Simulated assay, not measured.
Amino acid sequence: MKRTKQVPVCTIFVKDHKNRSLPITVPAVLEQVTVKHFKNLVENKLGIQANDQQLIFGGKTLLDNTVLSDYPELKENSNIFLVRRLHGGTKDELIESIIAEIPTIDQPCSICFHSPSLKLPCGDLYCRDCVRQNTCEAAKTRKTMVKCSVCHKEWSLSIIRQYGLVDKKGIYKLADKLSENLIIKDNEVWECPGCGCYGRREDKAKYRVHCSQCAAENKIADHCFRCARTWKQPSSSTECGNPECETSLLELLTTAPLKRIAYSGVICPSRRLCPNPKCGVLIEHARLCKQMTCMECSTKFCFICLSICQGDVWPCGSYAYRCKVAPIQLSGQVVRNQSWFRSFIRWLTG
């Protein structure tokens, strides 16, 4: 009797919208596994069509025409995040473990000037504490990659692992965190209020999104991308029929109380949208001067005239200069539709 030769296999986990880690078995030689084939395996396991899947690992989207080995740190037991693509019309654990056995040189760190330091692939010198701080800061501040603070070159996961800056467990945590950050920063990613599933809106012209997970569970499946309420207009894909949807943000901007900005003494609305066209998040001035930094996109801008800082140059002058008040922003802004923003809108509007 002829024995069948067994092919070595390994397990890769896919994290779904319920934060479950679902095992997917693939050949151990990842050069043989295309991303498209992996999506088919996910479809067989979860019933989500391959075309409706967006797979994310280490802050990067896995492309259909690549193989799993093209992502060096994607190995056995790694976590891949699954985001659904939505069609319109109808752990916050951070990196804390740095390996002690890192070769050092007797030169000062480029950041804190302490010795000894490490020479990174980009050529800059870092001490262990600054490597730890830079890696953790990238994860904390919703970055999708770790970059050198000096030359701004990317520290890939393979480089970080190869030079021993973070241990194996830390690499997995970092990859998961960068993937979560990419999901959060994507303006088109939407969290379904019915099941908590993350999905990506495919048609930007339509605000009606259909959740297949809710449909499978016999729940209300059509919701509004802007206000996250149940869709009430069956014949429309752009107007949900909820009066609060169109007016909530507009009312927040037009009814914002005026306040006097410290140092300059200029009176302006207390609520603005971030002037970065790729962000547009709602911001309320709390205290101090007019110079602001958006916590979402890190854009520096003037809260009074809405001019954006270019490098270290503020077009409207110093923090005490009385610049011209920009009009209330009524249109042309991209508004983030994450769950925290929707909760903030509902809290303000009652």
Rank of each mutant, 00 (worst) to 15 (best):
I328N: 01
A50S: 14
L55C: 05
L118C: 13
R260T: 15
A228T: 10
L157Y: 01
D92Q: 12
I56M: 08
R336P: 06
C268K: 04
D16G: 09
D129S: 13
I261L: 05
P277M: 08
K324F: 10
P193C: 03
V281M: 11
A100T: 13
D312V: 08
A28Y: 01
C10L: 14
L118S: 06
T254I: 10
E188T: 12
Q32V: 12
R346A: 03
A175S: 07
G280H: 11
S318D: 15
R260H: 05
A216R: 11
H285A: 10
P243R: 04
R200H: 09
L120D: 01
N187C: 12
Q6H: 11
A216V: 06
G317K: 11
G170M: 09
S115R: 13
C240E: 03
P8F: 11
L258K: 12
F341V: 15
Q233N: 14
K278E: 13
L330E: 14
I95F: 08
C289L: 07
S235R: 10
P103H: 13
P275N: 00
H17P: 01
P8K: 11
R132T: 07
F13D: 12
S156F: 06
E96F: 09
I102A: 09
L348S: 03
D129G: 04
E93C: 11
L252H: 00
R287V: 14
L253H: 08
K119D: 00
R132E: 10
R272S: 02
P269R: 03
C305S: 03
F225E: 00
A175Y: 01
P269M: 01
I102S: 13
Q162S: 14
D52H: 07
P275C: 04
Y163E: 01
P193F: 02
T90R: 10
C245K: 02
E202S: 10
L174Q: 07
H152G: 01
T104R: 15
T25E: 14
Q107P: 01
S237K: 07
G196S: 12
N44S: 07
I308G: 10
G170T: 08
S156T: 11
Y71M: 05
N19G: 02
E217N: 06
L46C: 05
R287D: 13
L22A: 06
T104C: 15
E96T: 12
P108G: 11
D176N: 15
A139T: 03
A286F: 12
G88V: 01
V146R: 04
S21Q: 14
T4L: 13
I99S: 15
P234F: 04
T61Y: 06
I308K: 01
R229W: 09
I304G: 02
G241S: 04
L182D: 09
T34K: 09
E239P: 03
E296P: 00
K45Y: 05
K173A: 10
